[in-house]
């Protein structure tokens, strides 16, 4: 059975969508980029980061968890939303410890890339300097909690894709942290470097050992082109 298709409007552009697609999925397919951080195309959405918040039919909603519907009118690329999204990215920068100059993910980091794309020159909210740990107990993976942005990608990947439940949250509010399924650290869990959960981290919290710096700084994913360019290229191709 072919899912019914319908149209909605985003920033004045008509987008075709099919039943069951979220707003972000439909827009991705149409080559319209909605900035996002916790969303991952291969994982069920969770709405943690709120970066993909759009004004949908006049209400602020996260595009990753909002089902596309016929006739929707969506605002995405507006100065207000860009400024709100930048503020959210800034919050993540000051909530954890994110020293780009000596971070292994620099150039490959989705948090950093969104900072660039959304025009953040420097975070100006007060840095929180939380005390967080590094977990190096696993032979092939280390967990650097300083970088964790609580996006839940690894939690979802481990539960849904790997069937392992290696990760979970602990605590609530500003004290919330990523936790692993063993008191002795990641090394005592079922985690393996080939797990989906090991490859979906948008920052450098989950890092596979001995595989870093193979791509030099300057040649990494977001060094030359902004995050989202791949999605936008689909539309450009179609138009030309």
């Amino acid at each position: 059975m072919v899912a019914a298709s319908f149209k909605f409007n985003i920033d004045g552009i008509e987008v075709e969508a099919t039943e069951g697609q979220s707003v972000i999925e439909a827009c991705d397919e149409a080559g319209i980029y909605i900035p996002r951080l916790c969303h991952h195309p291969e994982l069920p959405p969770s709405g943690n980061c709120r970066v993909c918040t759009c004004k949908i039919n006049g209400r602020h909603s996260a595009a990753c968890v909002t089902p596309a519907a016929h006739g929707m009118v969506i605002e995405n690329d507006t100065p207000q939303l860009t400024s709100d999204r930048r503020a959210v990215i800034e919050m993540l920068f000051v909530e954890g410890n994110h020293p780009c100059p000596y971070c292994v993910a620099s150039g490959d980091c989705e948090l950093q890339a969104l900072g660039y794309r959304l025009g953040m020159v420097a975070p100006t909210q007060p840095y929180q300097w939380p005390e967080r740990k590094i977990d190096a107990t696993h032979p092939d993976i280390y967990l650097d909690h300083d970088r964790c942005i609580l996006c839940s990608r690894c939690i979802r990947a481990s539960r849904m894709e790997d069937g392992k439940t290696v990760f979970g949250f602990e605590g609530r509010g500003i004290a919330m942290r990523l936790n692993v399924d063993a008191q002795g650290g990641l090394g005592e869990t079922q985690m393996a470097a080939i797990d989906k959960a090991a490859s979906v981290c948008p920052v450098a919290c989950i890092v596979i050992k001995r595989h870093n710096y193979q791509v030099p700084n300057g040649s990494r994913r977001f060094d030359k082109t902004p995050i989202g360019s791949d999605i936008e290229a689909k539309r450009t191709r179609r138009q030309s």
């Binding site: 709405g47 709120r50 909210q125 929180q128 509010g173 500003i174």
Partner: peptide, 21 residues
């Protein structure tokens, strides 16, 4: 609100603390 924020989403989790400060 800092104490009661559930922590799930960024703006509330971090924003409540920044507002308190």
């Amino acid at each position: 609100f800092v104490e009661e924020s559930c922590g799930w989403c960024t703006p509330c989790r971090v924003g409540t603390t920044l507002l308190k400060q």
